[in-house]
Design a protein around this nucleic acid. Structure first.
Lengths: 342, 342
DNA sequence: CTGAAAGCGCTTACAG
DNA sequence: CTGAAAGCGCTTACAG
C-alpha cells in the first residue's frame, strides 16, 4: 500500500482562482515572459500563487522545455577530503543561478561511473563536471559523442578539445623541489599517484623534468595505484627496499604523504630529522598534524566554482573553443621539511 | 543562442524498431510489469533498446507516476568533516535501490533551508533527510504539515512524532566523564554546542545530570553559538576568564575541542599536562594530531544508512509509528586526556 | 496582452 | 498478452 500524497497545487489551480487561462499563469510566473503580461494580472497571479502555496513543478517544466536545470558531478569518493570543497564550490555557483547539482561517487570504478552517467542522463542533466577523468577515458568520450557538455576538474584527459579546470602542475612540483633544494636535498624521491590520471602522471613528469634540469638523478620514482594513505604506505616500503640514499620525498598528494609518514613511523624514521616529505592538495587539518605537512595548496573551492562557470557557459551556448583553465597552486611550508642531514 | 541538443531516443523509437505499441515497450522495460509481456517480445524490446542506446527518461516517468525516485538531504555545510560520511551513507543506501539524492547546504540559515526545501519540492522529491534540525524547527513542521516524509539524522527536535536517527547522547557523555573521573579529574568543565540543537542541548544536560549524580559541581558550562573551531576558541576564553580551577574539559564536539586547544596553545597551556580535553564525533585525522584527541565515536556513515532505510520505508508505505533509532557511540581514548595534575 | 491547443516522454486503467 | 487513449503539469508557437 503506497502512501497517499497530498495533491499538489498546480498552475491550473492558480489560474482558476484568478480567473485566467493557465498559460497566462505560466507566463506571469516566468521571469522572462512576465513582461508580456499586464502588470495587474501578474500581480494577481503572484498573490494567488502565494496564497495557494504554489511552486513550479520543475519536473513538468523540464519535460516540456527539454532542459532540467540540473548538472551532474562525478567524483571518486565524497569521503576523500579533497572533494568536499570542490563540490561546495560547484553547488554554490550552480545554485546561485537556479541549478541543482546531483553528485555520484564512482570509487574510481568505470562501471559505477557509467551507471551514474546513465542515471544522470535519465534525469536530463544539462551537463557534467567530472573529477574522475583518466588520461584516456571512455566515459569522457561518451559524453563528447553524445553531445553532453562536460568539464573536467582537477584531473584531465590526454587528448585536446575537452574543457577542464586544472592545476599548473609544473609550477606546483617546481616550487616543492625548489624548496627542497634550498634545504640542500640532492637525493629526492617521488612517490607518484596513479599514472593513468593526469595529476599522477603530470606531477611525476614535472618531477623528472625539473630534476633533470638541475642534473639530479631521477631514478627514485615509485608509483601508486591509488591516491590513498594505504597505497602511500606500501609504495614507501617498495622504495626503501630498493634504495635508502634519499633524504627527501615528494609525494603525489597529501594522502600518499601521510601513508609514507605512517610507514616511516613504523620503521622508526623521523620526519623531518631523517627524511623530509611534502604533500600536495592541502587537505584540511594538515597544520594540526605532527609533523605538520609541507604541501602544495590546490584551490579546491575555486576550481569547483570555475568548472561550474565554464559548464554553465557552455550550456548557455557560448560555444567558443574548449577552455582549459590552469589554476595557480601555492607552496605551503610547514614542518615536515628541514635541512638535509646527510 | 542555445545549444542544439541531440534528440534523445524514446520509447517510441524502440517500439517502432520492434514493431509494437510503445506501451508494450514501457511494460517490457519495467521490472514489475515485465511478466505481463511475452518473453519473446521482452527479449526483442531489450535488444532494440540496447541497440538504440535507449535509457528511460526519469523526468517523464516521474511526472506521470507522481514520484521522482529522488530524496533530498539538508546539511549545514559539506565542508564540515562530520557530514561527508553521513552523506555517503545516504547515497550508498539510496542508490542501491535506484534513488537519487539531492543535497543542499543551508549554512544553518533558516532562509536557505526553506529555499532548498522549495527547490526539492519542485523536483518532487519523495522525502527529506535533515541534518539541520533545531529543537524547535519550523521547517520540520512544514514538512510534516505538507505530508513530506522526513527523517532527521544526528540532530532531532524536541517534540515527539518525528522519525529520527540519533545518538545515545547520555551514554556518550557518561563514557567521557567516567573516563575523566577514572583519571581523577574532579573539576570538569563543559564547552557546549548551540543550545538550540538537540546535540548541543542533550550533551549539556547529560553532562550536568551525570556530574550531579557524582556530587561534582556543574557550574563550569559555557555554550557556543556554532559547532566550530572559532566558537570553541572564544568559549574557552570566556570560561577561563570566569574560572581557572578546572583540570578537564568536555567539548560539545571535535571542532569545539580543537578551538579550545588552539586557545590553550596561544596561552601556553599544555594538553594534557595542564588540562585534559575530550571531543565528540570522531572526525577524520584526529589520531594524527598533536595531541591526538580523545573523543566519542559517532557512527556517521551508519547513521546515514539507517536514516535512508527509515525514509525509504516510509515512502514505501510502511506507516507504523514514527521511529527514533538511537545509535550507540563509543569512547576512543587517545592522548589529550591524562591523570589530573592538580 | 491573452486564450486555446498541442505536445514533452512516459505510465496505466480499460478493452479486447 | 497487447493496443489505443488519456493524462501527469507544464511551455510555447499560433491566433486574435
Amino acid at each position: 500500500m503506497k502512501r497517499e500524497r497530498k495533491r499538489k497545487v498546480t498552475i491550473r489551480d492558480v489560474a482558476d482562482l484568478v480567473g485566467v487561462h493557465h498559460s497566462t499563469v505560466s507566463r506571469a510566473l516566468s521571469p522572462d515572459k512576465r513582461d508580456k503580461i499586464s502588470p495587474t494580472v501578474v500581480k494577481k497571479v503572484e498573490k494567488a500563487a502565494k496564497k495557494l502555496g504554489y511552486y513550479r513543478n520543475i519536473v513538468a517544466s523540464s519535460l516540456k522545455q527539454n532542459r532540467s536545470f540540473a548538472v551532474g558531478v562525478l567524483i571518486p569518493d565524497l569521503m576523500n577530503p579533497v572533494f568536499p570543497p570542490i563540490i561546495r564550490g560547484i553547488q554554490d555557483t550552480a545554485e546561485a543561478v537556479g541549478y541543482t547539482v546531483i553528485t555520484a561517487n564512482t570509487d574510481d570504478e568505470p562501471e559505477k561511473e557509467r551507471d551514474a552517467l546513465r542515471m544522470m542522463q535519465g534525469r536530463s542533466i544539462e551537463g557534467v563536471i567530472m573529477a574522475t577523468a583518466r588520461r584516456e577515458d571512455p566515459i569522457v568520450e561518451e559524453c563528447l559523442a553524445n553531445d553532453i557538455p562536460v568539464v573536467l576538474v582537477n584531473r584531465t584527459v590526454d587528448r585536446d578539445g575537452v574543457n577542464a579546470v586544472v592545476l599548473d602542475e609544473n609550477y606546483g612540483i617546481r616550487s616543492v623541489i625548489d624548496h627542497l633544494m634550498s634545504l640542500k636535498h640532492t637525493r629526492i624521491a617521488h612517490i607518484a599517484g596513479p599514472q593513468h590520471t593526469s595529476t599522477g602522471f603530470q606531477r611525476a613528469k614535472a618531477f623528472s623534468d625539473y630534476l633533470s634540469i638541475h642534473n639530479i638523478p631521477t631514478d627514485l620514482v615509485e608509483a601508486t595505484n591509488k591516491f590513498t594513505i594505504e597505497e602511500g604506505r606500501r609504495a614507501f616500503r617498495r622504495l626503501l627496499a630498493r634504495d635508502n640514499s634519499f633524504s627527501a620525498i615528494v609525494a603525489g598528494n597529501d594522502l600518499i604523504a601521510l601513508g609514507c609518514m605512517d610507514a616511516m613511523r613504523d620503521m622508526g624514521l623521523l620526519v623531518p630529522e631523517n627524511i623530509s616529505i611534502t604533500g600536495y592538495d592541502d587537505i584540511l587539518f594538515l597544520e594540526r598534524m605532527s609533523p605538520a605537512l609541507t604541501t602544495v595548496l590546490v584551490p579546491k573551492y575555486e576550481m569547483g566554482c570555475q568548472a561550474t562557470k565554464t559548464l554553465l557557459g557552455i550550456i548557455d551556448g557560448e560555444d567558443k573553443a574548449p577552455v582549459v583553465l590552469r589554476m595557480q597552486p601555492r607552496l605551503i611550508v610547514r614542518n615536515s621539511t628541514a635541512l638535509a642531514s646527510r
